[in-house]
């Protein structure tokens, strides 16, 4: 296996872990919050999801730098690294890191934070896969912002439905 295949595989694995655990974290936290309290078992399950999510983020960051180094050695230059798609991905990852800090120190509403975190994982996935898009950086950021709002309201809908069907 060459380096390119290795780092790209790791990047995909990291993204899968991140998107998967972020989704599972939301689904399980909605399910567990039905009775209004989180017991020790439920807390442990959510903690495992958070740890997998953090592992995914670390793998994504390191493999992302690996891909960047390979691109640097091939001298891909500004066309690849100053492209709106690449810059949008970097912005999303930075938001993801910032929200992790803010949520950890309870400096942001947890519902808003979790919506931003989940939407960011999906945005990073879509921006990574959608290679043919020709949108500018600001359009991509607008789409990202829209995705955050949509995610927030979808999660709120399921939260309120979970409470009603208690």
């Amino acid at each position: 296996m060459d380096w390119s295949t290795f780092v790209r595989s790791m990047h995909i694995i990291g993204t899968a872990l991140g998107v998967g655990s972020a989704t599972l974290l939301e689904v399980l936290s909605i399910k567990f919050s039905k009775d209004g309290e989180v017991d020790i078992f439920e807390h442990d399950v959510l903690r495992i999801c958070i740890n997998v999510l953090r592992a995914g983020l670390i793998i994504v960051v390191f493999s992302g730098f690996g891909i960047m180094v390979l691109g640097r050695l091939r001298m891909l230059g500004p066309e690849a690294y100053f492209s709106p798609r690449f810059l949008a991905k970097m912005a999303v990852i930075l938001v993801l890191l910032l929200v992790a800090f803010l949520m950890n120190f309870r400096l942001i509403n947890l519902k808003v934070g979790s919506a931003i975190s989940t939407a960011s994982w999906y945005a990073a996935l879509v921006f990574g896969l959608w290679r043919t898009n020709k949108f500018s950086f600001f359009v991509l950021m607008g789409l990202y912002l829209g995705l955050i709002f949509v995610t927030y309201y979808i999660l709120e809908f399921f939260r309120s439905r979970a409470i009603k069907t208690k």
Binding site: M68, V69, G71, R72, M75, L76, G77, P78, E79, A80, Y81, F82, F86, M90, L94, L97
Partner: peptide, 17 residues
């Protein structure tokens, strides 16, 4: 450190053919 990283990425990105 993050600021330095972002600058490093921009520097690597500016090296083209």
């Amino acid at each position: 450190a993050l600021l330095v990283t972002i600058m490093g990425m921009a520097i690597s990105g500016a090296v083209g053919k």
